[in-house]
Simulated scan of single mutants.
Amino acid sequence: MNLQLNDVQQQLQDSLGRLLAREYDFGRRQQYAASAAGHSPEAWAQLAGLGVTAAAIGEAHDGFGGDAVDHMMISEALGKCLSLEPYHGTVVMAATAIEQLGSPTQQSSLLPRIARGELQVAWAHGESVPGRIATRAAHGVDGWRLYGTKPCVLHGTGADYFLVTAQAPNEGVQLFLVNASTTGVRNAGGRLIDGTPAADLALDDAEGERLGTLTPALLTRLLETGISAACAEMVGAMDGACALTVAYLKTRSQFGRVIGANQALQHRVVDMLTALEQSRSMSVSLALALAGRNDLTGAEVPVHAAKVLVTQNARHVAQEAIQLHGGIGMTEEYAVGHYLRRILVLDQLHGDMQYHLGYLERRAA
């Protein structure tokens, strides 16, 4: 599927590609991963200055009024360079949730700051099934108080706020804004296998500002937006792994000739590139559906199918890339193995491949 970007999107894509090539080569990326922040505040500020953080936020809140296609385009570019920046949690999930559910006051207070790159908000919802949310909310004379845990919140260690889903008695699932520095919030930080900073969030009588009720339909829509962006980021990671592999096969010599002249290896690379383009087509189709630009609008099954197909293809491409590199592909100092690590983390976002495959099997039964 071929997606024609408009002039603004094309300019943003070109500028983003140049910025990431300059600021996010693999050596710098590893320095960012080893830093206390776990990402690059300078690169994040440059992304904001470029308009990346504002692209899909409404014009009424200092954004450019984009949609899921903008998330897809940006996420793919970030995936290709193994970005560690908090785009997914802050912009894809938090900004979308605030736009959908926040009051006018909450929107005007938070969204312009997110658009300018001044605010980081972590998305604290890892449950696949809404009815199984263990975090509780209680309403008292002094407002809402939250109790429970949210494990593995991406970029939770550097967040200014958390968006927390919690079960309220007789009111269903609610979404709360929690200040990271408020009393009752404990934030134990760590790093995932790809270097992404994450936190285990514990809430004990913590004050929360209610945004609204997350109906099953609204929560599903938010998770679909996240799945689309995660799929696009996996496509970017596949693209990066393929590019490294092709370049390596063209330069690595053995027995007096480049190993890329071996026809068996050429066939394996063709399979990788086919998987990449198949996944990109699925990612584009899903983003267009969420943006209301094709006849899949509102369909639920393509979201699950996209996560399964793209994850399967991404794992295959990354594993093949490592094997075709030989021993160097297993080293920490070389980028290709880090693409597989990133893909494994993206697989876990918003339900892993097995969860979505199980959903499709139940629908087909």
Rank of each mutant, 00 (worst) to 15 (best):
P112W: 07
S128R: 08
V91S: 07
E99N: 09
H88E: 13
V121Y: 11
G89S: 12
A122R: 10
S109W: 13
E99I: 03
G131K: 04
G102E: 01
T96K: 15
R132M: 14
G126P: 02
G131M: 04
G89A: 05
V129K: 10
T96N: 13
L101W: 09
G102Y: 06
R116D: 04
A95M: 13
R113E: 06
V92W: 10
R132Q: 14
P112S: 00
S128V: 11
I133Q: 13
S128M: 03
V92F: 10
A95P: 11
S108N: 11
A95Y: 08
E127G: 10
T90N: 15
H88P: 04
A124M: 11
V92G: 12
V129M: 06
E99L: 11
A122S: 15
A94N: 01
Q106P: 02
S128Q: 08
E85Q: 12
T105E: 15
V92C: 13
A115R: 14
W123S: 03
Y87V: 02
G126I: 04
V92D: 11
S103K: 11
L101D: 07
L110W: 10
E99M: 14
H125N: 14
A115Y: 12
Y87P: 06
P104A: 05
Q120D: 14
R132Y: 10
E118N: 07
V91I: 13
V121S: 04
L111R: 10
A122D: 09
G131F: 03
L110F: 14
A115H: 13
E127I: 13
P130T: 07
P86W: 06
I114L: 03
Q106T: 08
V129E: 11
R116G: 08
M93I: 01
R113P: 00
Y87H: 10
R113S: 03
W123V: 03
A97E: 05
E118K: 09
E99H: 13
S103N: 11
Q120P: 05
E127A: 14
P86K: 02
T105V: 15
V129S: 05
T105F: 08
G117E: 09
Q107E: 08
L119P: 07
Q120Y: 12
P112V: 00
A122P: 06
